[in-house]
Each structure stands twice: as C-alpha cells, then as structure tokens.
C-alpha cells in the first residue's frame, strides 16, 4: 500500500524544515525587520539576549538576523542552480535515450567529462570570467548539476523507449518529440522531482562551501558559508558564531534530504502501483 504523505514522518519533518526556512528567509526581507548588515562595533560579541536572540558577532551585527538573511542567499542559489541543472540535464538525458549512435555517445561522454569536475573547480574556473558572487555560485553549481540530471533522465527514459506502447505510438505517426513529451516525460517526472529535492540539499551545501572559500556570495550580503569563515578566528571566544550557521546548513540539507528520501519511496517503481 502506498503511504499517504502525512503518514511518512520523514516527509513531514522535511517539509516542515523547508517551509520554516522559506518563511524565515521571507521575514528577514520585510522592510521593518532590522537590517542585519548594519555594523555597530559598540555592540560587538554580545551574548544571546532578548534583544539579540543569538547574540551579536565581532562587528555587532545581529546573528539571528544574519542567519535568517543567509537563508535567502542559500535558497536562491540552490533553486537557480538546480533549475539550471534540471532544465539542461533532463532534455539532454531524454535526447540521449531517444537516439542511439553518435549523438547518444557524444552527450554521455561530454557528461562524464563535466562530471569529473567538482563544483568548486568549476567555480574557480568561472571566477576568472564572472568574478566572485552569487551568479558565479549559481552557474558553477548549475553546471555541476547538469550531468546529474542527464544521467538520471537517461537511465529512467531509456527502458521506456523499448516498451511496446512506444512502438504503438510510432505506428500512430508520432515522431520522437511527440513521444518524448507525450509518453516519456510524464513517466519520469516523479523521479525528476525527487532528484530536484535531493539536489537542492547538495546545492545548499555547495553554496556554503563556495562562500566559505570566498567564491560565492560577496560581502556585505549575509551568507552561512561566509559566517563560518568569519567565525573561524573567534572559535575559542564565541563558538556560537560558528555553531549557529553550521547548524543552519546541516538543518537545511537534512530537510531536503528527508523530503527527497520520502518522495523517492513514493515514485520507486518497485513500490509503486501506477495511479493517475
């Protein structure tokens, strides 16, 4: 029997974490919320209090505000990057599955080539042309995601092309594009959504990594990765400055992974009875 989504605890917890993050990110952008980027050196390194829930950092900025605003950078980079990956990767994978011969080989081998470069290396390569910043992170993580989606879409789509209803569809006069859009895409869509969810978690981690080494979001825009970097020298004085953004990253990745895991149970062909 298929579990209903609210009966799967992973999905429940994952959804709550993600909704929470999005709400916090949204709240931090409201005009009447205190701007966390304002520097007030007099208030530096205050411990947590009613006024500053997580205390302040070495420049007197409100850490709670920074973490909330940091979610904006993380989520927007993750969504755009995974969007780039899925938008390019899924059609490429479906194309490779539809064609045998040189085109299929060209796509898959180019894919293997790109797959050999971690997002960090791509970001360093792009650094020369785009420079550090949010766009650099989005494009680098996006390129890194393309082969992930190409492989996934190829693997799911290829067996579908050998089924008899595809042959029947051909005899009805439909071409490759008509079959790909009408038959193949709807059948792999569930798996694509699962992959998107899982990749969002990885993308958040990758964004934090790039910002940490200075290739991602540039100051003064708050970012979890940079908060970690800046907290490094103060780890003995105020460990919370590293622990809080670290926990935020872990929680966000956990949320997307839990959701992806639970969703994959629903679209797993071994467990699934196809339903409209």
């Amino acid at each position: 029997m298929m579990q209903r989504w609210w009966q799967a605890p992973g999905q429940w917890a994952g959804s709550m974490i993600i909704v929470g993050l999005v709400v916090l990110a949204g709240v931090s952008l409201l005009p009447w919320v205190v701007d966390p980027t304002v520097i007030k050196v007099a208030d530096k390194l205050l411990p947590p209090s009613l006024q500053h829930g997580f205390g302040t950092d070495q420049l007197g900025r409100d850490v709670l505000g920074l973490v909330m605003r940091g979610a904006v950078a993380s989520l927007s980079v993750a969504f755009v990057a995974v969007g780039i990956g899925a938008a390019l990767g899924v059609p490429l994978g479906m194309l490779a599955a539809a064609r045998e011969g040189w085109l299929n080989q060209a796509i898959l081998r180019a894919n293997d080539f790109i797959f050999a470069f971690p997002a960090l290396v791509i970001a360093i390569l792009l650094h020369g042309t785009i420079g550090a910043g949010m766009v650099n992170a989005m494009v680098a993580i996006g390129i890194f995601n393309v082969p992930v989606f190409t492989r996934m879409a190829f693997g799911r789509a290829q067996p579908i092309w050998t089924l008899d209803f595809i042959r029947a569809s051909r005899l009805c006069g439909k071409g490759d594009l008509g079959i790909a859009v009408g038959h193949v895409l709807p059948l792999i869509l569930g798996a694509v959504i699962v992959q998107i969810t899982i990749q969002l978690g990885f993308a958040i981690l990758a964004e934090a990594g790039l910002s940490y080494v200075g290739l991602g979001v540039t100051p003064p825009t708050p970012s979890w990765g940079r908060m970690l970097n800046e907290a490094q020298t103060l780890i003995g004085v105020a460990p919370r400055l590293a622990l809080i953004p670290g926990a935020a990253i872990a929680l966000a990745v956990l949320g997307f992974t839990l959701l992806g895991d639970a969703l994959s149970g629903l679209v797993d062909p071994r467990r699934q009875v196809y339903r409209p």
Binding site: D164, L171, L187, Y274
Partner: peptide, 17 residues
C-alpha cells in the same frame, strides 16, 4: 499498417486511460 503486441499490459502507457 497497425500492430498488436504480445504483452497487452506493456502495450499501454500505465498513466493513460
């Protein structure tokens, strides 16, 4: 020219009526 296949289940898209 039309065709009928061996496995009637595989001959239909499971998501289509």
């Amino acid at each position: 020219i039309q065709m009928v296949f061996q496995d009637p289940m595989g001959a239909f898209n499971p998501r289509w009526t």
